[in-house]
Amino acid sequence: MNLDRPPAPNPYDLLPGVPTFTLESPDFADGDTLPAAHTYGGDNASPALRWSGAPEGTKSYAVSCFDPDAPTPSGFWHWFVVGVPADVTELPTGAGLIGGGSLPDGSVQLHNDYGTDDFGGAAPPPGDRAHRYIFAVHALDVADLSIDTQTSPAKASFIMLEHVIGRALLTGTYALS
């Protein structure tokens, strides 16, 4: 791997600004290393997430995990869920298992870049520097984006862009020795 390449920018810094709110996990703190349970070689389980302080007018949420440091021009989507109801403010560990795990009714899990409909754990190339895994909860001003499971995360991001009224971010890191 080319460890001399500059780190990729945080992609959310490149989007129109929106109010922020709080996102945390009992599994890791912002900037910490992801536990093995949330890696591809571990349990491949999505971390527990809790959020608060979303803007008034939130009608649903989208939840995602993106690795901007993947050695591709487009990063790597590990998870993307739309249709999380506005009254939901947390997801338990493993909510993103194949078949929906314990996602709330109405939620739709999109294909990740592994090609599966679940949370795909952290898996940077061996020897590469630590990658950032940016978990985002996007507060939306619509209850339904009319997105189906065949919609790519990149397309879903584009569709929802005009509906994002707030965003909360939490970043974990991970590297293979």
Rank of each mutant, 00 (worst) to 15 (best):
G96S: 07
A136G: 07
S157Q: 11
N2A: 06
P47K: 10
K59F: 00
A48K: 12
A156E: 08
P71S: 06
A156W: 11
E24H: 14
P35H: 12
L34Q: 03
L103E: 06
G17C: 01
T20D: 06
E56W: 00
D13V: 02
P16H: 08
F76C: 04
G42L: 09
D128S: 15
T89F: 14
R50P: 00
T72K: 14
G121C: 05
S46P: 05
G57P: 02
S177N: 14
G100K: 05
P6N: 01
A62I: 03
T89H: 15
F66V: 02
H138S: 14
A136N: 03
A136I: 04
V82W: 06
E162Y: 00
R167K: 10
D128C: 09
S177G: 14
G101A: 08
G101Q: 08
N112K: 09
V142Q: 10
L140K: 03
S152K: 12
G115D: 12
Y133E: 04
S52E: 14
S102G: 12
S177D: 15
A86V: 02
N10S: 07
S74R: 15
P68S: 11
S177A: 14
L169N: 00
A29R: 15
M1K: 01
N112F: 09
V142S: 05
E56M: 03
K59S: 12
I165H: 01
A154L: 05
L23V: 12
H163D: 04
P55M: 08
I147H: 04
L91D: 02
P71N: 13
L161D: 12
A86Y: 03
P71V: 10
E24F: 01
D141V: 02
V81A: 02
T149I: 08
A37N: 11
P71T: 03
M1S: 08
G17F: 00
F28D: 08
N44V: 03
S25W: 11
W51Q: 04
L3C: 13
C65D: 11
L49S: 09
A36R: 13
P126I: 02
D69N: 12
H78Q: 14
D4F: 12
Y114F: 14
R132F: 11
I98R: 13
F21V: 00
L49A: 05
G41D: 13
T39Q: 04
W77T: 03
Y61W: 11
G166Q: 01
E56N: 07
G115L: 09
P125E: 10
P125H: 06
D105P: 06
A139V: 01
D4Q: 13
D30R: 04
L110A: 04
I159W: 00
W77A: 01
K155D: 15
G100L: 09
G31P: 06
P26M: 01
A143T: 12
P85V: 07
